[in-house]
């Protein structure tokens, strides 16, 4: 399966989805003008990956900032992963990275953790 990788800009995050190296990461700032269009390749990739996922992996969120529209998409991604864990028996951990001074980003992660059954590891930097 082909790797999906894009570099971040001032309003879009870096994304790496690499089945071969078992690396899955979204980092940076996410406030694109059109979240649906921006995240479509990511959602499509995860959809295909979900049919034959890796058995054991972590998905890293290293977001410095995201807007409310992105927050909806992040929830969709987490729910997709939740479904993959449930249906395919994959062991998935969410690594939620945040700046140790950023209480709002920590809380955002905690609120996601309440909504899905995937285990979250909180990593303050």
């Amino acid at each position: 399966m082909e790797t999906y990788k894009i570099n971040g800009t001032e309003d879009t995050p870096s994304i790496i989805l690499d089945k071969t190296t078992n690396t899955f990461e979204i980092s940076g700032r996410s406030l694109p003008e059109d979240v649906v269009t921006f995240y479509k390749p990511t959602i499509d990739w995860l959809e295909a990956f979900g049919n034959a996922p890796n058995n054991n992996f972590s998905f890293d969120f290293k977001l410095e900032y995201f807007n409310t529209a992105s927050s909806k998409i992040i929830l969709d991604i987490l729910m997709k992963l939740d479904e993959v864990a449930e249906n395919k028996g994959a062991s998935i951990t969410i690594n939620w990275h945040y700046d140790k001074n950023d209480d709002d980003m920590q809380e955002a992660g905690e609120e996601y953790a309440e909504l899905v059954s995937l285990p979250f590891t909180f990593k303050a930097q």
């Binding site: 979240v35 807007n67 409310t68 609120e111």
Partner: peptide, 26 residues
């Protein structure tokens, strides 16, 4: 507000994510 945000985010479809009032709650 935390509950309102959670409920709106769960129920909003992507196309209306901008119009569901999530931004105001945030």
């Amino acid at each position: 507000l935390k509950l309102l945000f959670r409920d709106l985010r769960l129920s909003a479809t992507i196309s209306e994510a901008g119009g569901a009032g999530l931004g105001f709650v945030d």
